[in-house]
Design a protein around this nucleic acid. Structure first.
Length: 567
RNA sequence: CGGGGUGUGGCGCAGUCCGGUAGCGCACCUGGUUUGGGACCAGGGGGUCGAAGGUUCGAAUCCUUUCGCCCCGACCA
Protein backbone atom coordinates (compact mmCIF):
# COMPACT_ATOMS: atom_id res chain seq x y z
CA UNK A 1 0.00 0.00 0.00
CA UNK A 2 1.11 3.48 -0.76
CA UNK A 3 0.67 5.55 2.35
CA UNK A 4 -0.15 8.60 0.26
CA UNK A 5 -3.32 6.81 -0.81
CA UNK A 6 -4.09 5.00 2.43
CA UNK A 7 -6.26 5.96 5.36
CA UNK A 8 -3.93 5.93 8.33
CA UNK A 9 -4.86 8.94 10.45
CA UNK A 10 -2.02 9.01 12.96
CA UNK A 11 -2.12 11.49 15.78
CA UNK A 12 0.74 13.11 17.57
CA UNK A 13 -1.23 13.67 20.73
CA UNK A 14 -3.05 11.24 22.94
CA UNK A 15 -6.82 11.33 22.66
CA UNK A 16 -8.27 12.84 25.82
CA UNK A 17 -10.77 10.09 26.45
CA UNK A 18 -8.43 7.13 26.21
CA UNK A 19 -6.73 5.92 29.37
CA UNK A 20 -5.15 2.55 28.76
CA UNK A 21 -2.18 2.16 26.44
CA UNK A 22 -3.80 -0.17 23.95
CA UNK A 23 -6.74 2.15 23.48
CA UNK A 24 -4.54 5.24 23.19
CA UNK A 25 -2.19 3.63 20.72
CA UNK A 26 -4.92 2.09 18.59
CA UNK A 27 -6.42 5.54 18.14
CA UNK A 28 -3.09 7.30 17.69
CA UNK A 29 -1.79 4.77 15.19
CA UNK A 30 -4.96 5.11 13.15
CA UNK A 31 -6.22 1.57 13.70
CA UNK A 32 -9.63 2.42 15.10
CA UNK A 33 -11.99 5.34 15.56
CA UNK A 34 -14.59 5.66 18.23
CA UNK A 35 -18.14 5.94 16.96
CA UNK A 36 -19.76 6.09 20.40
CA UNK A 37 -19.13 4.66 23.84
CA UNK A 38 -18.25 1.01 23.39
CA UNK A 39 -18.54 1.13 19.61
CA UNK A 40 -15.52 1.30 17.36
CA UNK A 41 -14.84 1.46 13.66
CA UNK A 42 -11.85 -0.49 12.39
CA UNK A 43 -9.81 1.42 9.84
CA UNK A 44 -7.82 -0.41 7.17
CA UNK A 45 -4.67 -1.04 9.20
CA UNK A 46 -6.62 -2.05 12.29
CA UNK A 47 -8.74 -4.44 10.29
CA UNK A 48 -5.63 -6.04 8.78
CA UNK A 49 -4.29 -6.85 12.24
CA UNK A 50 -7.69 -8.10 13.35
CA UNK A 51 -7.90 -10.39 10.34
CA UNK A 52 -4.47 -11.78 11.12
CA UNK A 53 -5.71 -12.80 14.55
CA UNK A 54 -8.92 -14.27 13.12
CA UNK A 55 -6.85 -16.27 10.64
CA UNK A 56 -4.71 -17.73 13.42
CA UNK A 57 -7.81 -18.59 15.43
CA UNK A 58 -9.44 -20.22 12.42
CA UNK A 59 -6.32 -22.16 11.54
CA UNK A 60 -5.95 -23.64 15.00
CA UNK A 61 -9.65 -24.35 15.37
CA UNK A 62 -9.73 -26.13 12.05
CA UNK A 63 -6.64 -28.12 12.99
CA UNK A 64 -8.41 -29.17 16.19
CA UNK A 65 -11.25 -30.51 14.10
CA UNK A 66 -13.78 -27.74 14.66
CA UNK A 67 -16.00 -26.60 11.80
CA UNK A 68 -16.61 -22.98 10.99
CA UNK A 69 -20.21 -21.80 10.57
CA UNK A 70 -21.88 -18.42 10.55
CA UNK A 71 -24.98 -17.88 12.63
CA UNK A 72 -27.47 -15.03 12.36
CA UNK A 73 -26.83 -12.10 14.68
CA UNK A 74 -30.55 -11.77 15.08
CA UNK A 75 -31.91 -14.51 17.26
CA UNK A 76 -35.56 -15.18 17.95
CA UNK A 77 -37.00 -14.84 21.43
CA UNK A 78 -38.36 -18.39 21.12
CA UNK A 79 -34.85 -19.75 21.05
CA UNK A 80 -34.01 -18.03 24.31
CA UNK A 81 -37.27 -19.00 25.90
CA UNK A 82 -36.49 -22.64 25.22
CA UNK A 83 -33.40 -22.52 27.40
CA UNK A 84 -34.96 -20.16 29.90
CA UNK A 85 -32.41 -17.44 29.27
CA UNK A 86 -34.89 -14.99 27.79
CA UNK A 87 -35.70 -14.19 31.42
CA UNK A 88 -32.37 -14.89 33.08
CA UNK A 89 -30.12 -12.94 30.71
CA UNK A 90 -31.39 -9.65 31.98
CA UNK A 91 -30.74 -6.22 30.53
CA UNK A 92 -27.38 -7.20 29.14
CA UNK A 93 -29.14 -8.59 26.10
CA UNK A 94 -30.19 -6.17 23.40
CA UNK A 95 -33.81 -6.93 22.59
CA UNK A 96 -35.67 -5.60 19.62
CA UNK A 97 -38.96 -6.10 17.82
CA UNK A 98 -39.69 -6.34 14.16
CA UNK A 99 -42.61 -4.63 12.42
CA UNK A 100 -44.92 -7.43 13.48
CA UNK A 101 -43.88 -7.02 17.10
CA UNK A 102 -41.95 -10.28 17.02
CA UNK A 103 -39.22 -10.21 19.63
CA UNK A 104 -35.56 -10.81 18.87
CA UNK A 105 -32.23 -10.48 20.59
CA UNK A 106 -28.98 -9.35 19.07
CA UNK A 107 -26.83 -12.34 19.88
CA UNK A 108 -24.77 -11.83 23.05
CA UNK A 109 -23.61 -15.48 22.82
CA UNK A 110 -24.81 -18.44 20.78
CA UNK A 111 -25.28 -21.55 22.92
CA UNK A 112 -28.95 -21.72 22.01
CA UNK A 113 -28.45 -21.05 18.33
CA UNK A 114 -25.77 -23.70 17.93
CA UNK A 115 -27.61 -26.18 20.11
CA UNK A 116 -30.67 -25.79 17.91
CA UNK A 117 -28.52 -26.15 14.81
CA UNK A 118 -26.84 -29.30 16.04
CA UNK A 119 -30.16 -30.71 17.24
CA UNK A 120 -31.43 -30.48 13.70
CA UNK A 121 -28.47 -32.21 12.08
CA UNK A 122 -27.40 -35.02 14.41
CA UNK A 123 -29.42 -38.10 15.30
CA UNK A 124 -26.94 -40.83 16.12
CA UNK A 125 -23.85 -41.32 18.24
CA UNK A 126 -22.15 -41.84 14.89
CA UNK A 127 -22.68 -38.15 14.15
CA UNK A 128 -20.77 -37.18 17.28
CA UNK A 129 -18.57 -35.65 18.35
CA UNK A 130 -19.01 -32.33 16.61
CA UNK A 131 -17.42 -29.03 17.34
CA UNK A 132 -18.86 -26.04 15.52
CA UNK A 133 -17.74 -22.46 15.74
CA UNK A 134 -18.03 -19.02 14.22
CA UNK A 135 -16.11 -15.77 14.27
CA UNK A 136 -18.81 -13.19 14.52
CA UNK A 137 -19.99 -10.02 16.21
CA UNK A 138 -21.52 -10.19 19.67
CA UNK A 139 -23.72 -7.55 21.19
CA UNK A 140 -23.86 -6.90 24.89
CA UNK A 141 -25.45 -3.97 26.60
CA UNK A 142 -22.57 -3.60 29.02
CA UNK A 143 -23.18 -1.71 32.20
CA UNK A 144 -20.05 0.22 31.59
CA UNK A 145 -18.08 -0.12 28.38
CA UNK A 146 -14.48 0.92 28.92
CA UNK A 147 -10.84 0.59 27.96
CA UNK A 148 -11.58 0.99 24.27
CA UNK A 149 -11.99 -2.27 22.52
CA UNK A 150 -11.32 -4.31 25.68
CA UNK A 151 -14.87 -3.93 26.90
CA UNK A 152 -17.32 -2.77 24.30
CA UNK A 153 -20.98 -3.10 23.42
CA UNK A 154 -20.18 -4.78 20.16
CA UNK A 155 -17.18 -7.00 19.69
CA UNK A 156 -15.93 -9.89 17.63
CA UNK A 157 -15.79 -13.25 19.29
CA UNK A 158 -14.85 -16.72 18.24
CA UNK A 159 -17.32 -19.01 19.91
CA UNK A 160 -17.15 -22.77 19.61
CA UNK A 161 -19.47 -25.46 20.93
CA UNK A 162 -18.69 -29.13 21.22
CA UNK A 163 -21.19 -31.96 21.49
CA UNK A 164 -20.19 -35.37 22.75
CA UNK A 165 -21.96 -38.58 23.54
CA UNK A 166 -20.39 -39.07 26.95
CA UNK A 167 -18.19 -37.55 29.62
CA UNK A 168 -15.04 -39.09 28.18
CA UNK A 169 -15.79 -37.46 24.85
CA UNK A 170 -16.44 -34.10 26.45
CA UNK A 171 -13.19 -34.33 28.38
CA UNK A 172 -11.39 -35.01 25.14
CA UNK A 173 -13.06 -32.16 23.28
CA UNK A 174 -12.30 -29.84 26.16
CA UNK A 175 -8.65 -30.86 26.22
CA UNK A 176 -8.37 -30.31 22.47
CA UNK A 177 -9.69 -26.79 22.88
CA UNK A 178 -7.41 -26.12 25.83
CA UNK A 179 -4.47 -27.12 23.63
CA UNK A 180 -5.73 -25.10 20.65
CA UNK A 181 -6.11 -22.03 22.85
CA UNK A 182 -2.55 -22.31 24.06
CA UNK A 183 -1.39 -22.55 20.45
CA UNK A 184 -3.53 -19.60 19.36
CA UNK A 185 -2.33 -17.21 22.02
CA UNK A 186 1.22 -18.37 21.59
CA UNK A 187 1.09 -17.64 17.86
CA UNK A 188 -0.36 -14.20 18.57
CA UNK A 189 2.71 -13.43 20.64
CA UNK A 190 0.68 -13.32 23.82
CA UNK A 191 1.77 -14.62 27.16
CA UNK A 192 -1.32 -15.94 28.83
CA UNK A 193 -1.92 -17.36 32.25
CA UNK A 194 -4.54 -20.09 32.24
CA UNK A 195 -6.52 -19.99 35.48
CA UNK A 196 -9.35 -21.89 37.09
CA UNK A 197 -12.50 -19.89 36.87
CA UNK A 198 -15.99 -19.70 38.15
CA UNK A 199 -18.38 -20.78 35.44
CA UNK A 200 -20.72 -17.88 36.14
CA UNK A 201 -24.07 -17.61 34.41
CA UNK A 202 -22.97 -19.96 31.65
CA UNK A 203 -23.47 -22.87 34.00
CA UNK A 204 -21.58 -26.12 33.95
CA UNK A 205 -18.67 -27.69 35.74
CA UNK A 206 -15.04 -27.19 34.72
CA UNK A 207 -13.92 -23.89 33.40
CA UNK A 208 -10.61 -22.32 32.55
CA UNK A 209 -9.85 -18.73 31.66
CA UNK A 210 -6.96 -17.48 29.59
CA UNK A 211 -5.67 -14.29 31.08
CA UNK A 212 -3.16 -11.79 29.76
CA UNK A 213 -1.22 -10.26 32.59
CA UNK A 214 -1.75 -6.53 32.47
CA UNK A 215 -1.94 -3.60 34.83
CA UNK A 216 -5.26 -2.62 33.30
CA UNK A 217 -6.74 -6.08 33.69
CA UNK A 218 -10.23 -6.20 35.11
CA UNK A 219 -9.67 -9.53 36.78
CA UNK A 220 -7.61 -10.35 39.83
CA UNK A 221 -5.80 -13.65 39.78
CA UNK A 222 -4.37 -15.61 42.67
CA UNK A 223 -1.23 -17.51 41.81
CA UNK A 224 0.91 -19.91 43.76
CA UNK A 225 4.49 -19.67 42.63
CA UNK A 226 5.40 -22.91 44.29
CA UNK A 227 2.91 -25.44 43.00
CA UNK A 228 1.36 -23.52 40.12
CA UNK A 229 -2.17 -23.15 41.50
CA UNK A 230 -3.88 -20.42 39.51
CA UNK A 231 -7.38 -19.12 39.92
CA UNK A 232 -9.55 -16.16 39.25
CA UNK A 233 -10.40 -14.32 42.45
CA UNK A 234 -14.05 -15.28 41.97
CA UNK A 235 -13.11 -18.91 42.17
CA UNK A 236 -9.93 -18.87 44.24
CA UNK A 237 -9.93 -20.99 47.34
CA UNK A 238 -7.36 -20.83 50.07
CA UNK A 239 -6.26 -22.88 53.02
CA UNK A 240 -8.35 -21.81 55.97
CA UNK A 241 -6.70 -21.56 59.33
CA UNK A 242 -8.26 -23.69 62.05
CA UNK A 243 -6.65 -21.75 64.88
CA UNK A 244 -9.03 -19.95 67.18
CA UNK A 245 -8.64 -16.29 68.01
CA UNK A 246 -10.04 -13.70 70.41
CA UNK A 247 -10.90 -14.21 74.08
CA UNK A 248 -14.07 -15.54 75.60
CA UNK A 249 -16.12 -13.08 77.59
CA UNK A 250 -19.68 -12.25 78.49
CA UNK A 251 -22.17 -10.98 75.98
CA UNK A 252 -22.58 -7.24 76.51
CA UNK A 253 -24.69 -4.67 74.71
CA UNK A 254 -22.83 -1.45 73.95
CA UNK A 255 -24.24 1.84 72.74
CA UNK A 256 -22.54 2.74 69.43
CA UNK A 257 -24.39 5.80 68.13
CA UNK A 258 -24.16 6.05 64.35
CA UNK A 259 -21.03 3.90 64.23
CA UNK A 260 -21.61 1.48 61.41
CA UNK A 261 -18.61 0.66 59.31
CA UNK A 262 -15.98 -1.86 60.31
CA UNK A 263 -13.32 0.86 60.20
CA UNK A 264 -15.27 3.14 62.51
CA UNK A 265 -16.05 0.28 64.85
CA UNK A 266 -12.43 -0.89 64.93
CA UNK A 267 -11.48 2.62 65.98
CA UNK A 268 -14.31 2.90 68.51
CA UNK A 269 -13.44 -0.40 70.18
CA UNK A 270 -9.74 0.02 69.37
CA UNK A 271 -9.30 -3.52 68.16
CA UNK A 272 -8.57 -5.52 65.02
CA UNK A 273 -11.22 -5.66 62.28
CA UNK A 274 -10.88 -9.42 62.37
CA UNK A 275 -12.81 -9.56 65.64
CA UNK A 276 -15.96 -8.22 64.07
CA UNK A 277 -18.63 -10.28 62.45
CA UNK A 278 -19.56 -8.48 59.29
CA UNK A 279 -23.18 -9.20 58.55
CA UNK A 280 -24.53 -8.45 55.11
CA UNK A 281 -28.03 -8.94 53.79
CA UNK A 282 -28.43 -10.28 50.26
CA UNK A 283 -31.38 -11.05 48.11
CA UNK A 284 -30.93 -14.35 46.29
CA UNK A 285 -33.58 -15.14 43.70
CA UNK A 286 -35.97 -12.87 45.57
CA UNK A 287 -35.34 -14.34 49.03
CA UNK A 288 -33.41 -12.46 51.72
CA UNK A 289 -30.29 -14.26 52.93
CA UNK A 290 -27.80 -13.07 55.51
CA UNK A 291 -24.07 -13.73 55.17
CA UNK A 292 -21.69 -13.43 58.09
CA UNK A 293 -17.90 -13.16 57.69
CA UNK A 294 -15.08 -11.86 59.84
CA UNK A 295 -14.56 -8.12 59.57
CA UNK A 296 -11.17 -8.33 57.86
CA UNK A 297 -12.61 -10.11 54.82
CA UNK A 298 -14.73 -9.25 51.81
CA UNK A 299 -17.60 -11.45 50.84
CA UNK A 300 -17.19 -13.18 47.51
CA UNK A 301 -20.62 -12.98 45.97
CA UNK A 302 -19.82 -15.65 43.40
CA UNK A 303 -19.04 -18.14 46.17
CA UNK A 304 -22.21 -17.23 48.02
CA UNK A 305 -24.21 -17.54 44.85
CA UNK A 306 -22.74 -20.95 44.08
CA UNK A 307 -23.34 -22.15 47.61
CA UNK A 308 -26.97 -21.06 47.41
CA UNK A 309 -27.24 -22.37 43.84
CA UNK A 310 -28.95 -19.10 43.06
CA UNK A 311 -29.26 -17.70 39.57
CA UNK A 312 -29.29 -14.11 40.74
CA UNK A 313 -27.88 -12.47 43.82
CA UNK A 314 -27.49 -8.87 44.90
CA UNK A 315 -26.97 -6.86 48.05
CA UNK A 316 -30.27 -6.00 49.65
CA UNK A 317 -31.51 -2.45 49.48
CA UNK A 318 -31.93 -0.45 52.69
CA UNK A 319 -35.61 -1.27 53.04
CA UNK A 320 -34.97 -4.99 52.96
CA UNK A 321 -32.12 -4.63 55.42
CA UNK A 322 -34.39 -2.80 57.82
CA UNK A 323 -37.10 -5.42 57.42
CA UNK A 324 -34.69 -8.29 58.05
CA UNK A 325 -32.67 -6.80 60.91
CA UNK A 326 -35.36 -4.70 62.55
CA UNK A 327 -32.81 -1.90 62.81
CA UNK A 328 -31.32 0.70 60.54
CA UNK A 329 -28.50 -0.24 58.16
CA UNK A 330 -25.20 -0.91 59.94
CA UNK A 331 -26.40 -2.79 63.00
CA UNK A 332 -27.06 -6.25 61.64
CA UNK A 333 -25.70 -9.30 63.44
CA UNK A 334 -26.33 -13.02 63.94
CA UNK A 335 -27.27 -12.76 67.63
CA UNK A 336 -31.01 -12.90 68.30
CA UNK A 337 -31.55 -12.47 64.58
CA UNK A 338 -34.92 -13.05 63.01
CA UNK A 339 -33.40 -13.51 59.59
CA UNK A 340 -34.88 -16.51 57.78
CA UNK A 341 -31.53 -17.89 56.68
CA UNK A 342 -27.98 -17.13 57.80
CA UNK A 343 -24.85 -18.50 56.13
CA UNK A 344 -21.59 -18.27 58.07
CA UNK A 345 -18.14 -18.18 56.64
CA UNK A 346 -16.06 -21.07 57.95
CA UNK A 347 -13.77 -18.72 59.89
CA UNK A 348 -16.63 -17.56 62.08
CA UNK A 349 -16.64 -20.71 64.20
CA UNK A 350 -13.09 -19.98 65.38
CA UNK A 351 -13.79 -16.57 66.82
CA UNK A 352 -14.20 -15.72 70.51
CA UNK A 353 -15.39 -12.47 72.04
CA UNK A 354 -16.53 -11.09 68.72
CA UNK A 355 -18.22 -7.76 68.15
CA UNK A 356 -21.30 -7.58 66.02
CA UNK A 357 -24.42 -5.57 65.38
CA UNK A 358 -27.25 -6.06 67.91
CA UNK A 359 -30.08 -5.83 65.34
CA UNK A 360 -31.01 -2.70 67.22
CA UNK A 361 -30.22 0.76 65.92
CA UNK A 362 -27.12 2.28 67.55
CA UNK A 363 -26.19 -0.87 69.50
CA UNK A 364 -23.55 -3.57 69.10
CA UNK A 365 -22.75 -6.69 71.11
CA UNK A 366 -19.29 -7.45 72.41
CA UNK A 367 -18.12 -10.78 73.79
CA UNK A 368 -20.11 -12.67 71.21
CA UNK A 369 -19.50 -16.42 71.30
CA UNK A 370 -20.45 -18.71 68.41
CA UNK A 371 -22.47 -21.68 69.66
CA UNK A 372 -23.46 -19.88 72.85
CA UNK A 373 -24.95 -16.68 71.43
CA UNK A 374 -25.96 -17.95 68.02
CA UNK A 375 -26.07 -21.29 66.26
CA UNK A 376 -24.18 -21.98 63.07
CA UNK A 377 -26.54 -24.01 60.97
CA UNK A 378 -25.01 -23.34 57.57
CA UNK A 379 -21.32 -22.87 57.01
CA UNK A 380 -19.41 -22.28 53.75
CA UNK A 381 -16.36 -20.61 52.27
CA UNK A 382 -17.77 -17.18 51.54
CA UNK A 383 -14.81 -14.84 51.41
CA UNK A 384 -12.53 -13.55 48.75
CA UNK A 385 -8.95 -14.80 48.72
CA UNK A 386 -6.36 -12.03 48.84
CA UNK A 387 -2.61 -11.68 48.36
CA UNK A 388 -0.77 -13.68 51.01
CA UNK A 389 -3.52 -16.21 51.60
CA UNK A 390 -2.29 -19.78 51.61
CA UNK A 391 -2.48 -21.93 48.50
CA UNK A 392 -5.26 -24.51 48.83
CA UNK A 393 -3.03 -27.17 47.28
CA UNK A 394 0.37 -26.65 48.85
CA UNK A 395 -0.10 -24.09 51.60
CA UNK A 396 2.40 -21.52 50.31
CA UNK A 397 1.36 -17.84 50.36
CA UNK A 398 -0.19 -16.83 47.05
CA UNK A 399 0.43 -13.64 45.04
CA UNK A 400 -2.06 -11.62 43.01
CA UNK A 401 -1.91 -10.35 39.43
CA UNK A 402 -4.22 -8.30 37.27
CA UNK A 403 -5.32 -9.86 34.03
CA UNK A 404 -7.38 -9.35 30.90
CA UNK A 405 -9.56 -12.30 30.04
CA UNK A 406 -9.04 -13.17 26.38
CA UNK A 407 -10.45 -16.66 26.32
CA UNK A 408 -12.67 -18.90 28.36
CA UNK A 409 -13.47 -22.57 28.01
CA UNK A 410 -16.27 -24.42 29.83
CA UNK A 411 -17.63 -27.85 30.25
CA UNK A 412 -21.31 -27.10 30.05
CA UNK A 413 -22.59 -30.62 30.42
CA UNK A 414 -26.30 -31.02 29.68
CA UNK A 415 -27.39 -27.54 30.64
CA UNK A 416 -28.54 -26.63 27.13
CA UNK A 417 -28.88 -30.01 25.52
CA UNK A 418 -31.34 -31.00 28.22
CA UNK A 419 -33.40 -27.83 28.32
CA UNK A 420 -33.49 -27.73 24.54
CA UNK A 421 -34.21 -31.44 24.23
CA UNK A 422 -31.33 -32.64 22.13
CA UNK A 423 -31.06 -36.37 21.95
CA UNK A 424 -29.24 -38.91 19.85
CA UNK A 425 -29.35 -42.67 19.78
CA UNK A 426 -26.43 -44.51 21.32
CA UNK A 427 -25.07 -47.82 20.06
CA UNK A 428 -27.87 -49.64 21.85
CA UNK A 429 -30.50 -47.59 20.12
CA UNK A 430 -31.25 -45.76 23.34
CA UNK A 431 -31.82 -41.99 23.34
CA UNK A 432 -29.16 -40.06 25.21
CA UNK A 433 -28.59 -36.37 25.81
CA UNK A 434 -25.22 -35.20 24.49
CA UNK A 435 -22.77 -33.28 26.65
CA UNK A 436 -21.73 -29.85 25.58
CA UNK A 437 -18.68 -27.67 25.94
CA UNK A 438 -18.30 -24.06 24.94
CA UNK A 439 -15.18 -22.14 24.10
CA UNK A 440 -14.84 -18.38 23.54
CA UNK A 441 -12.11 -16.04 22.43
CA UNK A 442 -12.58 -12.28 22.35
CA UNK A 443 -10.91 -11.58 19.02
CA UNK A 444 -11.06 -7.80 19.24
CA UNK A 445 -10.03 -7.98 22.86
CA UNK A 446 -7.12 -10.21 21.91
CA UNK A 447 -5.96 -7.50 19.52
CA UNK A 448 -5.99 -4.97 22.36
CA UNK A 449 -4.21 -7.45 24.61
CA UNK A 450 -1.48 -7.96 22.02
CA UNK A 451 -0.93 -4.21 22.01
CA UNK A 452 -0.93 -4.08 25.80
CA UNK A 453 1.95 -6.53 25.71
CA UNK A 454 3.73 -5.11 22.67
CA UNK A 455 4.38 -1.40 22.78
CA UNK A 456 6.98 1.08 23.94
CA UNK A 457 7.24 4.84 24.36
CA UNK A 458 7.23 5.49 20.62
CA UNK A 459 4.32 3.25 19.72
CA UNK A 460 3.42 -0.28 18.77
CA UNK A 461 5.90 -3.13 18.44
CA UNK A 462 3.84 -5.81 16.72
CA UNK A 463 4.71 -9.47 16.75
CA UNK A 464 5.12 -10.37 13.07
CA UNK A 465 2.20 -12.81 13.23
CA UNK A 466 -0.43 -10.14 13.80
CA UNK A 467 1.24 -7.01 12.40
CA UNK A 468 -0.89 -5.24 9.80
CA UNK A 469 2.09 -5.25 7.41
CA UNK A 470 5.36 -7.13 7.14
CA UNK A 471 7.44 -4.20 6.02
CA UNK A 472 7.26 -0.44 6.36
CA UNK A 473 9.22 1.09 3.50
CA UNK A 474 10.27 4.68 4.12
CA UNK A 475 11.26 6.47 0.96
CA UNK A 476 13.44 9.54 1.23
CA UNK A 477 14.07 10.78 -2.25
CA UNK A 478 14.24 14.16 -3.89
CA UNK A 479 13.88 14.20 -7.64
CA UNK A 480 11.76 12.06 -9.92
CA UNK A 481 14.66 9.72 -10.59
CA UNK A 482 15.19 8.92 -6.95
CA UNK A 483 11.50 8.43 -6.42
CA UNK A 484 11.33 6.06 -9.35
CA UNK A 485 14.21 4.09 -7.82
CA UNK A 486 12.33 3.78 -4.52
CA UNK A 487 9.20 2.71 -6.39
CA UNK A 488 11.28 -0.09 -7.87
CA UNK A 489 12.33 -1.28 -4.44
CA UNK A 490 8.67 -1.21 -3.41
CA UNK A 491 7.60 -3.22 -6.43
CA UNK A 492 10.27 -5.81 -5.89
CA UNK A 493 9.21 -6.31 -2.27
CA UNK A 494 5.62 -6.78 -3.35
CA UNK A 495 6.61 -9.25 -6.01
CA UNK A 496 8.29 -11.25 -3.25
CA UNK A 497 4.87 -11.65 -1.70
CA UNK A 498 5.47 -9.34 1.23
CA UNK A 499 2.83 -7.04 2.69
CA UNK A 500 4.43 -3.65 2.31
CA UNK A 501 3.35 -0.27 3.54
CA UNK A 502 5.22 2.27 1.44
CA UNK A 503 5.56 5.76 2.84
CA UNK A 504 5.71 7.75 -0.39
CA UNK A 505 4.36 10.96 1.12
CA UNK A 506 5.98 14.32 0.51
CA UNK A 507 6.93 14.80 4.12
CA UNK A 508 10.12 15.28 6.04
CA UNK A 509 11.96 12.12 7.12
CA UNK A 510 11.35 12.78 10.80
CA UNK A 511 7.61 12.64 10.34
CA UNK A 512 7.85 9.40 8.42
CA UNK A 513 10.09 7.76 11.00
CA UNK A 514 7.84 8.84 13.83
CA UNK A 515 4.81 7.40 12.06
CA UNK A 516 6.68 4.18 11.34
CA UNK A 517 7.57 3.84 15.02
CA UNK A 518 4.01 4.60 16.02
CA UNK A 519 2.48 2.00 13.71
CA UNK A 520 5.17 -0.46 14.73
CA UNK A 521 5.44 -2.71 11.69
CA UNK A 522 8.18 -5.22 12.60
CA UNK A 523 10.61 -4.39 9.80
CA UNK A 524 11.40 -0.92 8.54
CA UNK A 525 13.31 -0.43 5.32
CA UNK A 526 14.70 3.01 4.64
CA UNK A 527 15.52 3.84 1.08
CA UNK A 528 17.43 7.10 0.98
CA UNK A 529 20.84 8.57 0.43
CA UNK A 530 22.86 5.45 1.26
CA UNK A 531 20.90 3.65 -1.44
CA UNK A 532 21.61 6.31 -4.02
CA UNK A 533 25.28 6.49 -2.98
CA UNK A 534 26.22 2.84 -2.25
CA UNK A 535 23.18 0.84 -3.30
CA UNK A 536 22.46 -0.15 0.29
CA UNK A 537 19.15 -0.15 2.09
CA UNK A 538 18.82 0.32 5.79
CA UNK A 539 16.88 -2.31 7.61
CA UNK A 540 15.67 -1.72 11.13
CA UNK A 541 13.91 -4.04 13.54
CA UNK A 542 11.19 -2.11 15.30
CA UNK A 543 11.17 -4.16 18.46
CA UNK A 544 14.90 -4.12 19.17
CA UNK A 545 15.98 -0.99 17.33
CA UNK A 546 18.67 -3.10 15.67
CA UNK A 547 19.82 -1.63 12.40
CA UNK A 548 21.88 -2.89 9.49
CA UNK A 549 22.66 -2.23 5.83
CA UNK A 550 21.53 -4.67 3.13
CA UNK A 551 22.01 -5.02 -0.59
CA UNK A 552 18.73 -5.26 -2.51
CA UNK A 553 19.55 -8.82 -3.57
CA UNK A 554 19.48 -10.12 -0.02
CA UNK A 555 16.62 -7.95 1.12
CA UNK A 556 13.63 -10.27 1.07
CA UNK A 557 15.61 -13.16 2.53
CA UNK A 558 16.78 -10.94 5.37
CA UNK A 559 13.23 -9.65 5.95
CA UNK A 560 11.84 -13.16 6.17
CA UNK A 561 14.49 -14.10 8.67
CA UNK A 562 13.57 -11.18 10.87
CA UNK A 563 9.86 -11.88 10.59
CA UNK A 564 10.43 -15.48 11.59
CA UNK A 565 12.41 -14.34 14.62
CA UNK A 566 9.88 -11.81 15.81
CA UNK A 567 6.72 -13.75 16.08
C1' C B 1 -27.82 2.91 38.42
C1' G B 2 -24.75 5.46 42.58
C1' G B 3 -20.21 8.65 43.20
C1' G B 4 -16.54 11.98 40.68
C1' G B 5 -15.16 14.73 36.26
C1' U B 6 -15.81 16.85 31.49
C1' G B 7 -18.10 18.88 26.76
C1' U B 8 -15.16 25.35 22.83
C1' G B 9 -12.78 24.18 14.39
C1' G B 10 -10.29 17.29 12.61
C1' C B 11 -6.95 16.54 17.39
C1' G B 12 -5.02 18.70 22.10
C1' C B 13 -6.31 22.89 24.99
C1' A B 14 -7.08 28.39 26.95
C1' G B 15 -11.21 31.67 27.75
C1' U B 16 -16.22 30.53 32.04
C1' C B 17 -15.21 32.60 38.78
C1' C B 18 -15.51 38.97 37.45
C1' G B 19 -21.21 38.60 30.85
C1' G B 20 -19.26 42.91 25.80
C1' U B 21 -19.87 38.97 20.28
C1' A B 22 -14.05 33.31 20.20
C1' G B 23 -8.27 32.35 20.79
C1' C B 24 -3.60 29.18 20.93
C1' G B 25 -0.67 24.70 19.36
C1' C B 26 -1.00 20.65 15.96
C1' A B 27 -3.38 19.16 11.46
C1' C B 28 -5.32 21.19 6.63
C1' C B 29 -4.97 24.50 1.74
C1' U B 30 -1.66 27.90 -1.67
C1' G B 31 3.28 29.66 -3.00
C1' G B 32 8.42 29.37 -2.05
C1' U B 33 12.86 27.46 0.43
C1' U B 34 13.95 22.68 2.66
C1' U B 35 14.64 16.82 3.14
C1' G B 36 18.06 10.79 7.53
C1' G B 37 14.39 11.68 13.48
C1' G B 38 8.04 15.30 14.18
C1' A B 39 11.69 21.89 8.93
C1' C B 40 11.07 27.29 7.77
C1' C B 41 8.83 31.84 5.66
C1' A B 42 4.51 34.17 3.70
C1' G B 43 -0.57 33.91 2.73
C1' G B 44 -5.27 31.24 3.70
C1' G B 45 -9.83 28.10 4.92
C1' G B 46 -12.62 26.11 8.85
C1' G B 47 -15.96 26.58 15.04
C1' U B 48 -21.53 30.13 17.45
C1' C B 49 -18.85 27.33 22.13
C1' G B 50 -23.00 19.43 23.39
C1' A B 51 -28.59 20.56 23.02
C1' A B 52 -33.08 23.18 24.54
C1' G B 53 -35.20 26.96 27.28
C1' G B 54 -34.61 31.32 30.41
C1' U B 55 -32.29 36.09 32.54
C1' U B 56 -30.05 40.44 30.00
C1' C B 57 -29.42 45.96 25.65
C1' G B 58 -25.83 41.95 25.14
C1' A B 59 -24.43 34.96 27.09
C1' A B 60 -19.09 30.19 25.62
C1' U B 61 -19.45 32.88 30.38
C1' C B 62 -25.31 33.52 34.83
C1' C B 63 -29.99 30.20 35.82
C1' U B 64 -33.05 25.67 34.54
C1' U B 65 -33.63 21.24 32.00
C1' U B 66 -31.45 17.66 29.01
C1' C B 67 -27.83 14.73 26.25
C1' G B 68 -22.92 12.83 25.22
C1' C B 69 -18.23 11.27 26.88
C1' C B 70 -14.39 9.73 30.68
C1' C B 71 -13.01 7.66 35.57
C1' C B 72 -14.35 4.59 40.32
C1' G B 73 -18.10 0.46 41.90
C1' A B 74 -22.01 -4.27 40.72
C1' C B 75 -21.64 -7.73 34.83
C1' C B 76 -18.50 -10.38 31.07
C1' A B 77 -14.82 -12.53 25.89
Amino acid sequence: MRLSQYILPTQKEDPSDAQVSSHRLMIRAGLIRKEAAGMYAYLPAGLRALRKISAIVKDEMDKAGAMECLMPELTTADLWKESGRWDSMGPEMFRIRDRNSMEYALGPTHEEAFTALVRSVVSSYKDLPVNVYQINTKFRDEIRPRFGVIRSKEFIMKDAYSFDIDQGGLDESYQKMAAAYRAIFDRCGLETIPVQADSGTMGGSASEEFMVASEVGEETLLLCEKCGYRANQEKAEFKRSSSEFGEKSALTEVNTPAIKTIDDLAEFFSCDGKLFLKTIVFVADGEPVVAVVTGDRDINEAKLKNYLQATDIEQADDETVVAVTKSSVGFAGPVRSEAPRIIFDSAVANIHGAITGANKTDYHFTGVEPGRDFVIEEEADLVEAVEGDLCPDCGEPMITRKGIEVGHIFKLGKKYTESMKVSVLDNNGKAVVPLMGCYGIGVTRTLAAVIEQHHDDSGLTWPASVAPFDVHLVGIGKGDEEKAAIDEVYNSLISEGLDVLYDDRKLSPGVKFADADLLGVPVRITCGKSYFADGELEIKIRKTGEQSAVKPDNLSKKIREILADHN
